[in-house]
Design a protein around this nucleic acid. Structure first.
Lengths: 204, 204, 204, 204
DNA sequence: CTCTAACCGAGACGGTACGTCTCGTCTTTTG
DNA sequence: CAAAAGACGAGACGTACCGTCTCGGTTAGAG
């Protein structure tokens, strides 16, 4: 279930790393071209020019492999984002996330959330290896806001962030309604109740 | 893709309706016992004492069949709920929904949301045949609140309801954190800004 | 397994006879168009514009039905054939039979011989209802030859006729070599040893 | 369509040969026990303890598989047979063949001849892979007879052998009459006109 | 500069389920 | 009341992948 940490687990430094890259790329390609359920280990192996066993050596399942794809992909788009306003930071972050969900890499995440409904192991991996690291970055935004006095000191960061991300992901995943600027502004305004000091009086 | 509407579309219908009931029940049972991915058409047919073809005659896929299960199940637990306070109605509704998601019938919904990520047809069916009818009931709650002066008259019902249901379902589906009373109260308070007698007159 | 003898078994004289004709014709057509294994009771019923059950009411199997086709078809091509020479009669009869085997109606016979290898009931029916009546006609030819003094008086008719028909049908059914005049002449000459009186001295 | 020639065409062959033997044996058993039409690929696979795909990997159809059974079985019962008299050799060969047709392995041949009526591919394979090799052995018997002066030098071997085997196989396959010694002797006498010492010198 | 052991490609294997097909039976409705 | 229409239980079809398992053939580093 654990993906390889190439430096540690391959003392002989064989072709492992090269195969790994080819497999992750092939998996991404096949998923985008054919969709999740038509993505098979055999198809990925054929596309990567690799034997099935080479995939099974390092990953335990299709979802496990795609999780590595997701993490590799997500590792690239993280300019930390600090505008000076927590509300603004979060609005931008949420819109960025909504856009991400519609892109190929985001489709991987949606597929994995789907699989997590049937497979607790995937659910666990998804939380610890993807969701929680991202969440940590968002907590920093809120903490900055509290330190600046923008936000209430007793704000529960996880409650607030679930209340922000939940609606966005729900729209993309379930209802299919668009996540536009107004909806995101409404969410941030409602959930954070930012102090008048930096944004003027509450609008409603 | 459309399940049979026995009375209307099948004047010559033989044992159809009886088989239909047996199949839906068997599907529910198998799903609860074995989980989504171990639920197979063959397994359902065997459990229902029915030929595979009889399932394929009326449903196009496992997900299509489970959607009918969900709708049949959900048709039974809908006492309309009117406490006199929209906020209270919604709090109760959200807690009831969170509890539902953890029950067997709720597992069907979670599985279908998962499948909808891979299959747009399922996504479409899920919206029109399950989510939208439920949504309509919740809109009534908000409309009552507006009529009573509890809620702002310009409240966008779909935005508000996505902002309420999204976090609940996100917790169950993705982060796994519990949906307790305090969280639900926080959501309702934040999203609706209810201004009944106890909080002074509505600001608008 | 017994096909209907229409005059006797249908006291009510309903649509039976009309359906029977349509079914036999449809069976013939389908067999010629699609070959034996693609000929299906369902296909015949559809072609004849008849319900499956109507076929099952009167025939027990595809082979049983085709046997009736064969007998109906064969009832038409029997000008008795009497040239004054038994050897000549048989030569013509054998060539006619070889040609018949290559025609559509003959393909039915070949198919039935094929099925008879797997199904003893078909084998039995084929013998008593088709092969034996034909055989009786050929015995007459030989008896005429014996009466005329062309043939040996101790000739065993069934041995001789098996020795004549066997090679012809074997070529068509198994080896695929052509049944030409010379081969038929060779067979008749060898098997009958016809008396010199009517054909001159034995040639070899 | 071609069965594996394990030594030559599969350098990396794993358990191939072992599976092949188990499958051929199982096919033989099932055919004898249940008859041709109740013999299924699934049944053979189950009996052989083998996956269906392993059969489909090497054989294209039930008939293709049975053809290999036939060839394997027939490869064992061929002591060349040379009594010094072509007529005697052929009498014994024909009786042996008639007996073979009634045995299990012979039932395979009869079934294949049956299928060949519906399937030209089977017919072709049956000729080139079974009938023709056997025929070649019988031609040797006739050639010896010609060399010894027992048989006419212009004897057409294929005509003669069809005239001998045809009646035997016709009796077993179609008429069901027994193939006894007297019938075989009659055939050989008629078809070959052997002219050894006891009938004067050969006329040509 | 070999030896040797991990790793690789290739792909056969026992399985399971797929979705389709046809069988022969059974039920309902129509003429 | 027989025929059409067609749903039904049954079960084989041939295909697709699953995850496991040999195979030989490289391809390093360790000796």
């Amino acid at each position: 279930m654990i993906s390889p940490t190439p430096a540690a687990s391959q003392p002989t430094a064989g072709r492992g790393p090269r195969a790994r890259a080819a497999i992750l790329e092939a998996a991404d390609d096949v998923l985008v071209e054919k969709g999740f359920s038509a993505t098979t280990i055999e198809g990925i192996a054929a596309r990567a020019g690799v034997a099935k066993q080479t995939i099974y050596r390092w990953w335990s399942s299709k979802a496990d492999l795609l999780l590595d794809c997701l993490i590799d992909d997500a590792g690239q788009d993280l300019p930390p984002l600090d505008t000076g306003s927590s509300a603004e930071d979060l609005r931008r972050e949420l819109l960025r996330f909504a856009a991400f969900l519609e892109q190929p890499a985001g489709r991987v995440l949606r597929a994995l959330i789907g699989e997590a409904q049937h497979d607790p192991t995937i659910a666990q991996q998804l939380r610890t290896r993807y969701l929680e690291p991202r969440r940590q970055l968002d907590r920093v935004i809120l903490q900055r806001g509290i330190a600046r006095g923008e936000l209430a000191t007793d704000l529960d960061a996880d409650d607030a962030l679930d209340a922000l991300y939940g609606p966005v992901i729900y729209r993309v995943i379930a209802t299919g309604r668009p996540v536009h600027d107004r909806f995101v502004a409404y969410l941030v305004e409602s959930v954070l109740h930012p102090r008048p000091a930096d944004r003027g009086p509450p609008r409603r």
